[in-house]
């Protein structure tokens, strides 16, 4: 390093070390429960994720969101706020939508979890995924996996019978880019198609 490091060098060095620490994803994605538990503190967990049985040994503090992202490498579910305030982490558990950041993984022992990775049938998109593309229902895409799973659940709940009901039914998913009108259009497109 030169004796008087320029601003750019500092930035590059900073970014490089951030990558090294895995922090570049944004501080919100740092796992809540670091894998610092002594091996004796680990517990067994088995559940079904996207149709596959998974058996793991985990730190009891692991949230469902961290389990999916960190232990299983399924990074579709996003960590927006990590406190139940944004819906980016929405997944389905036994068909019902929940915020995976506020559930301990142990709470879903034996349950069936569906993430955005499990929605398509092979190469064929789920109709809601296709509707989001057709209606241009996203900009940056960070909230999108949660929006899509939430929308799938909303239609299954059968309460999206008006535009107002769609907006209220989707209110647990915040979109910072403000793609709301198009998200509603995507849900409307599929409503009533069974």
């Amino acid at each position: 390093m030169p004796p008087n490091p320029g601003r750019r060098d500092v930035l590059v060095g900073g970014i490089a070390s951030a990558i090294g620490l895995g922090l570049l994803d944004g501080c919100a994605t740092v796992p809540t429960a670091p894998a610092a538990a002594a091996p004796s503190d680990l517990v067994d967990l088995s559940l079904e994720v996207n149709g596959q049985r998974r058996a793991l040994r985990i730190d009891p503090r692991t949230t469902l969101l961290d389990l999916l992202r960190e232990n299983l490498g399924l990074t579709g579910a996003k960590k927006g706020c990590d406190m139940g305030q944004c819906g980016a982490c929405t997944v389905l558990v036994d068909g019902q939508r929940i915020d995976s950041c506020l559930a301990l993984a142990l709470q879903v022992e034996g349950r069936k979890v569906t993430t955005i990775e499990g929605l398509a049938r092979g190469e064929e998109l789920h109709p809601m995924q296709a509707a989001f593309i057709e209606e241009d229902a996203f900009q940056c895409g960070y909230c999108t996996p949660g929006q899509i799973l939430s929308a799938v659940a909303l239609l299954a709940e059968g309460v999206a019978d008006s535009d107002g009901a769609i907006r209220e039914g989707m209110s647990g998913n915040i979109c910072r880019c403000g793609a709301y009108p198009n998200i509603c259009a995507a849900v409307r497109r599929l409503r009533g198609r069974g």
Partner: peptide, 9 residues
Amino acid sequence: GASPQLRNV
């Protein structure tokens, strides 16, 4: 109260 996701649990 809360959101559909939260009310489900």
